[in-house]
């Protein structure tokens, strides 16, 4: 129906089309026609003008939208982190669990005084960095609120494996009050939550200069760190050589501690990484074979169709 309507309308515009095609054929054959000279000049002018308009509008559009927009000054952006060859970020590597254990030690002895890690429970450490008994012992060192008892009072009890790691402050307000207005962020997902991930955290932890460079404005109560967006960070430098004594005897340099704690925080952000990569490897292997097989089967099924020849036997004349 629609097609028929279209056809009818096409027929009604046929004269117009004829005129248009005539014009087109004339301009296409200008070089050979007698009125060529003037017409070729107009065509050149028109063509050049059209080109100029096209180029100009593209240039204008690019001027408006094509360029990268920098909303921030480089200082506000922060120095981009160096890309480090993290072993655990390779596609076929798990976390180094010895490093996780060291990293947890660093977190517990250094970071935990201000930062919470409340999406990690004690039982998560079991089988990753600590044995059941170690985790139980550590959990029992902390007190947690009980559920309301018969009188509705909330009492204290020793921690259990099912409890999350304790927060250093009761709530965000208490944390702000204790840190002159700055809230130490929860570190559970910090590796996923910051641009640059592990690289950024490592650079942030180890990138505090001895003193701010000349000309840098450091507001009162803040510290200078070139990697932190805005360069003024409320956290002071925390990691110094020998701050922690590792139980496995690894020399506790500042960069070693930073590396370990960053790896630990990466684990806390994605504890499933080991399993995920292992499963990914299996999936890739099986899918590759499956893909090759399916290509073969496709060709197998199509080969009669692709190689057939249709023979036309014309009718016999009588």
């Amino acid at each position: 129906m629609l097609a028929r309507t279209c056809l009818r309308s096409a027929r009604s515009v046929a004269p117009v089309r004829n005129v248009a095609s005539k014009t087109a054929s004339r301009s296409a054959s200008t070089s050979s026609s007698s009125e060529g000279a003037a017409s070729s000049f107009t065509m050149t002018v028109a063509g050049s003008a059209a080109t100029a308009v096209a180029v100009g509008s593209i240039a204008w559009y690019f001027h408006l939208f094509g360029q990268e927009a920098y909303a921030m000054t480089p200082a506000e952006e922060g120095l981009h982190p160096t890309s480090y060859p993290w072993e655990h970020l390779k596609w076929n590597k798990t976390f180094d669990h010895q490093a996780l254990r060291r990293g947890f030690q660093v977190y517990r002895e250094v970071c935990a005084s201000c930062h919470s890690l409340n999406r990690v429970a004690w039982h998560a450490l079991v089988g990753a960095t600590h044995t059941v008994d170690e985790a139980k012992t550590m959990a029992e060192e902390h007190e947690y609120d009980t559920e309301p008892n018969d009188e509705g009072e909330i009492e204290k009890r020793a921690g259990k494996l099912s409890d999350p790691l304790p927060s250093p402050y009761k709530n965000d307000e208490a944390a702000r009050a204790a840190n002159s207005g700055a809230l130490p962020p929860d570190l559970s997902l910090i590796v996923k939550a910051r641009h640059g991930g592990c690289d950024y955290l490592f650079d942030l932890l180890t990138g505090y200069p001895e003193e701010p460079p000349a000309g840098a404005a450091v507001p009162a109560g803040l510290n200078f760190n070139p990697y932190f967006p805005g360069t003024g960070i409320a956290m002071a430098r925390q990691l110094y050589d020998g701050l922690v004594e590792y139980e496995d005897g690894t020399p506790a340099t500042a960069s070693q501690m930073a590396k370990d704690v960053v790896e630990f925080l990466n684990w806390s952000a994605e504890p499933e990484m080991d399993e995920r990569k292992k499963m990914g490897m299996k999936v890739v292997v099986v899918s590759t074979v499956l893909f090759a097989l399916s290509v073969w089967v496709k060709r197998y099924k199509w080969s009669p169709i692709k190689t057939r020849k249709i023979v036309y036997n014309p009718p016999v004349k009588h």
Partner: peptide
């Protein structure tokens, strides 16, 4: 594949 994985990650796992 578990064996291959463990050989990739010798000494790294818990």
């Amino acid at each position: 594949s578990n064996r291959v994985w463990d050989s990739f990650n010798q000494g790294r796992q818990w």
